[in-house]
Every structure is written in C-alpha cells, then in structure tokens.
Design a protein around this nucleic acid. Structure first.
Length: 272
DNA sequence: ATGGTGGCCGAGCCA
C-alpha cells in the first residue's frame, strides 16, 4: 500500500479550453489529487467524465455561474466533507473548495483557493477590486485557521500575491504593481502566520533563489525574458510540511499545447 | 512602448 500523497495545484485558465493539458498532467505525472483554479465552467458543464476515465473518479467543483473564476478538485482518492465558502458576503463567488483525503489512515484537509487578482491600481480607496482582494485576505486570516477542525491541512492555489523579493523577476520594478505591493505581501504573510502554515516551496527552494509559477501571455518569449512571478502556493501544517519529500514547479507545462499562463505545482507528502 | 495576449461570450470585462 502506498503511503505517499502527491497534490498538484494549477490555475488552468478555462478547464474546457485546456482539458487536454489537464489530461496530459494526469497521464504523464499522475498526482493523486489535482486542485484547479480559474476553471471558468459551471458545474453542469465540467468535464468530469473525461477525468473519471483516467482514474480520477472523485471530482468536486465550485463553478458558480461559469464565466469567471471557479475551482475544482480531481482525485484518485475519495473526497470527504466537501465544503465551499463564499467570501466577502458574496452569494456566488467560486473561489474556494475544501475536501478531505485519507492516506494510510491519516486524514489531510485540502483547501483550494483562487484569491481575487485585485485589478490594476493598488489603492483600496480608488479601486474596489483591490479593496476586495485585501478584504478576502483578511477574511482568510480570520476564518481559515479554524476551518479544518483539527485535521492537518494543506492550503493551495492561485493566491495572486508574490510575497518575497525573489518571488518576482524584479522587486524594484514590481514594488507598485498589484501582486507584489507591500500591503498585499504583508496581508498574505498574515494569513499564513495566522494558521502557522509552512510555505513548502520555500523549504525546497531557498529564498535566495528566484522561483516563479506564472509568466504573462504578453511576453514575446516568456522563457528567455523570464519575467515571472510566484503567484501560486502550497502551504502545509507543520506536521505535514515535515513529511514533504518532493516539491517542484512543472515549468515545462507552460510550453504545452495552448498553455495556461500558470505552471502546475507538485508536492509529495510521505504519510507512512 | 500605457501596448502586449487570452478566455469568457458574442461587447466589454477580467486576468
């Protein structure tokens, strides 16, 4: 019996447009669980059957009205206690989905997030989208630490903030650009510290080393110019972080056919 | 260089 759990997180930028590269991840990498963001797909239209055929029999999705945002979890393992939370008092705001998987008798609570991008102007007074982003992060900090009911948890997703200097191609150039402004970086750090989660990526890739998960579609040659940002994250309860045996950003997927602008992240936990 | 690209849905919004 295997005692490892491999979790992927990937902002897919429309699951219907990019179903084939999701299938490529399932076939070629084969994580146990895949957390998707920006599915842009109502639940009734979600291509669950295609993923089930590949062995991902357990599918949970939160697609809202379809056009915007949306999160989903594909899993080879049963998903228990599936939960959705609408943040910031919005009726339909499909940005969160939680579920529990159990490996070797050990339950792990997964929280899959798509944090609001925040628009262009980093001023909460002038820009309601930035206000929403800060409010969302504040609500995460207040709610998330108590949300897993004592089950060790993993928080993943497109958190839309690159918190450290080496999480962006130029700290100086991006200091006033939404995703890397000090107020957001501090807000994200507050969320992480509120629950005591470990930034798993940074336990594998030292803080001195640049690490990105997103490269703009607008770059002429994304790999050569390498103007990336680390917007996607894997956080883990310290007991789980201590069991993390592998982590990587699957940068090659940024060059797959009709790619997402985000690369998948993969973490493996040894629950033996 | 205040553009550039891409997906929603079928114009303008969102990222």
């Amino acid at each position: 019996m295997t005692t490892t759990l491999t979790v992927a997180t990937w902002n897919i930028n429309s699951v219907r447009m990019r179903r084939l590269i999701v299938e490529r991840l399932l076939n070629e990498v084969g994580p146990d669980v895949v957390c998707l963001q920006e599915t842009k797909c109502q639940d009734a239209q979600f291509p669950s059957a295609d993923f089930r055929k590949l062995g991902y029999e357990h599918v949970a999705c939160n697609g809202g009205r379809g056009g915007y945002h949306g999160v989903a979890i594909l899993s080879r393992l049963p998903l228990a206690d599936v939960e959705v939370r609408d943040f910031c008092g919005k009726d339909v705001d499909p940005r969160h989905l939680a579920a529990t998987v159990t490996v070797n008798g050990r339950p792990v609570r997964l929280h899959n997030f798509y944090v609001p991008a925040g628009g262009d102007e980093p001023d909460p007074e002038a820009n309601p989208k930035f206000r929403h982003k800060l409010d969302f992060l504040a609500e995460m900090a207040a709610w998330l630490p108590g949300a897993s009911g004592g089950v060790p948890d993993v928080v993943v997703g497109d958190l839309n903030v690159a918190p450290y200097e080496t999480d962006v191609w130029s700290h100086k150039a991006l200091i006033d650009v939404v995703s890397h402004t000090p107020i957001e970086c501090e807000a994200l750090e507050k969320v992480r510290l509120a629950g005591g989660w470990v930034d798993v990526a940074r336990t594998f890739v030292p803080i001195e080393e640049r690490l990105y998960t997103w490269w703009s579609y607008r770059a002429k040659d994304w790999r050569a110019t390498d103007k990336g940002r680390r917007l996607d994250h894997v956080w883990a309860h310290p007991d789980l972080a201590a069991r993390a045996t592998a982590f990587r950003v699957l940068k090659d997927a940024r060059d797959w056919d009709r790619p997402s602008d985000h690369a998948p992240l993969l973490v493996t936990l040894d629950l033996g």
